[in-house]
């Protein structure tokens, strides 16, 4: 299972890539694998505002439905339109072409609460032990 180094992570398996005041958001390799084949992605509208913890994206797989939570508060400035035609990109390239949305951050300090790759890996290992 790939955990990419330069990203931040949440306990609910979203990853966050920061560049300036904009973050790109996706789900981790672990999350896509547990969800199985994603066959439908419901993306938000550009301009929509979300508070940290609100549902920004819904992923439907052949197994179940999963919600993706806003890891930070802000405004949607881009969505990955490719997923409308090819939702399986989230499975194939969760960290690259399978990204979900981009948000403009309200408060950069919210990023301090997220995990780095090492912490995320530790969390996954712990949950596996259970």
């Amino acid at each position: 299972m790939e955990i990419r180094e330069n990203l931040l992570y949440t306990e609910t398996h979203e990853w966050i890539l920061k560049k300036d005041r904009v973050v790109r958001i996706g789900i981790s390799d672990y999350a896509q694998d547990s969800l199985t084949d994603i066959v439908y992605v419901e993306l938000p509208q550009i301009g929509q505002r979300f508070k940290k913890g609100e549902v920004i994206v819904t992923l439907e797989s052949v197994k179940s439905v999963a919600e993706v939570y806003a890891p930070v508060s802000g405004e949607i400035i881009a969505v990955n339109e490719k997923l409308n035609d090819e939702p399986g990109l989230v499975n194939k390239m969760p960290y690259d072409d399978g990204w979900l949305v981009e948000m403009k951050l309200d408060d950069e300090s919210e990023l301090n609460l997220l995990m780095d790759a090492k912490q995320y890996e530790e969390m996954l290992n712990k949950s596996k032990d259970l």
């Binding site: 199985t36 084949d37 066959v39 797989s61 052949v62 197994k63 399986g88 499975n91």
Partner: peptide
């Protein structure tokens, strides 16, 4: 996946 109390393989590669 847990199905009716059994730990069963949900998939090995991809369901589809």
């Amino acid at each position: 996946t847990n199905f009716m109390g059994y730990e069963m393989p949900l998939k090995y590669t991809s369901v589809q």
